Amino acid sequence: MSAVVAAVLVATVAGCSSTGGKRAEERAAKAAQGRAAVDTPRWTFAMVTHSGDGDTFWDIVQKGAKQAAQKDNINFVYAHDVEGNKQAQDVQAMIDQKVDGLIVTLAKPDAMKDVVAKAVKAGIPVITVNSGENKSKEFGALTHIGQDESVAGEAVGDELNKRGKKKAVCVLHEQGNVGHEERCAGVKKSFKGDVENLYVEGTNMPGVQSSIEAKLQADKDIDAVVTLGAPFAPTAVKAAQQAGSKAEVDTFDLNEKVAKGLQDGSLGFAVDQDPYLQGYEAVDLLWLYRYNRDMLGGGRPVLTGPQIVTKDDAKTLAEFAKRGTR
């Protein structure tokens, strides 16, 4: 007899009151927690990303991946490094461990090309996520999950036009990240005003604030600051305040602080690419491929964004952001 059935029977014997029924449902739900929805083999899937330490975006990606892994009876392993060569070493370690599936980012594709080829040659199915859509198929991956970074950048430029902005600074926090360059190039392509790139060291948040503050003090014409990651948006707000600038701060990506910033008006808008969905779908699609050789979209990129999020949307999304899934 299953734990769920047992819980229901106990509740029936105890009585048929609404209270008893509710308690039975709660016990049944608790008994079901932690169980896989399938009885397929206990495969091991590894995800290796270019995340730096403390980046909340990747916490959300992991949450989606772990929840899909639980459902699909997958042993999920995660590693990350902001340096391309070290990320490649982590991938090689996963190959040596003979994982059953591999999820990687291609923020620095030159560093990843050879090791991804090794994984494919070893018969390990590979899916790319978040960064590297343009190189994914070339490197032998089954598909790519994420947003088109150029399109996302153009969406930002369009939104800035709607808001009547004239001069923007695009803050790049990770040197050599091709996705970041594509975002800022997209902004420049669609924005009718002027755009300047500002390169900062993302692992040094006080330095990020100082750099943005100095830029705003030096150029009073800047009326929009675009950050490329949610953790940097509140820092840009502080920098604008310290500089005495009225520039609107907008950002790529969403987290709880960004949702609050949109609600209180300290942030103008955000571009959400749904990191939870990226993690969840990457694991789920690998499982589908291992189990049934399915591949959603026939191998074409599976897009999770972009979605422009404003103050009007933030209230609804704040609940999801608080629990760490948006």
Results as ranks from 00 to 15, higher is better:
5 V>E: 14
10 V>T: 13
12 T>R: 13
17 S>I: 09
21 G>I: 10
23 R>E: 15
29 A>H: 09
30 K>C: 01
34 G>M: 10
37 A>M: 09
39 D>P: 01
41 P>E: 04
42 R>L: 13
44 T>N: 06
46 A>C: 04
50 H>A: 11
54 G>A: 11
54 G>Q: 07
60 I>Q: 09
60 I>P: 01
61 V>S: 04
65 A>T: 02
71 K>I: 07
78 Y>V: 08
79 A>T: 11
81 D>I: 01
83 E>P: 00
84 G>T: 09
84 G>H: 10
86 K>H: 07
90 D>A: 15
96 D>G: 07
96 D>M: 09
99 V>Q: 03
100 D>K: 10
100 D>I: 05
101 G>T: 05
102 L>R: 08
104 V>T: 11
105 T>N: 08
106 L>P: 04
106 L>Y: 03
108 K>E: 13
109 P>K: 00
112 M>D: 05
112 M>P: 05
113 K>F: 06
115 V>F: 02
116 V>I: 14
118 K>F: 05
120 V>A: 02
122 A>N: 08
126 V>P: 06
130 N>T: 12
130 N>V: 12
130 N>Q: 06
134 N>S: 14
139 F>L: 13
142 L>I: 03
146 G>E: 04
147 Q>E: 14
148 D>S: 10
149 E>G: 03
152 A>M: 07
159 E>K: 15
161 N>F: 03
164 G>E: 08
165 K>I: 01
170 C>Q: 07
172 L>H: 03
174 E>I: 11
174 E>K: 13
175 Q>G: 03
177 N>R: 09
178 V>D: 13
180 H>N: 11
181 E>G: 02
182 E>V: 04
182 E>R: 15
185 A>Q: 14
186 G>V: 03
187 V>D: 00
187 V>Y: 01
191 F>A: 05
192 K>Q: 13
196 E>Y: 00
196 E>V: 11
199 Y>V: 08
203 T>Y: 07
204 N>P: 02
206 P>H: 04
207 G>F: 00
207 G>L: 01
207 G>D: 01
208 V>Q: 07
213 E>R: 15
214 A>Y: 09
217 Q>Y: 01
224 A>L: 08
227 T>H: 07
231 P>C: 00
231 P>Y: 00
232 F>N: 05
235 T>V: 15
235 T>R: 09
237 V>G: 03
239 A>D: 04
242 Q>L: 14
242 Q>H: 12
244 G>M: 03
245 S>W: 08
247 A>Y: 09
249 V>P: 04
250 D>V: 15
252 F>R: 06
253 D>Q: 07
255 N>I: 00
256 E>D: 13
258 V>T: 08
261 G>I: 04
262 L>F: 06
269 F>H: 12
270 A>C: 04
270 A>T: 06
272 D>K: 12
273 Q>D: 11
273 Q>K: 09
275 P>Q: 10
278 Q>W: 02
280 Y>I: 03
285 L>T: 12
286 L>F: 03
287 W>H: 15
291 Y>A: 14
291 Y>D: 14
296 L>G: 00
298 G>N: 11
300 R>D: 12
304 T>G: 01
305 G>T: 07
307 Q>G: 06
307 Q>H: 12
307 Q>A: 14
312 D>N: 10
315 K>W: 01
318 A>I: 10
319 E>K: 15
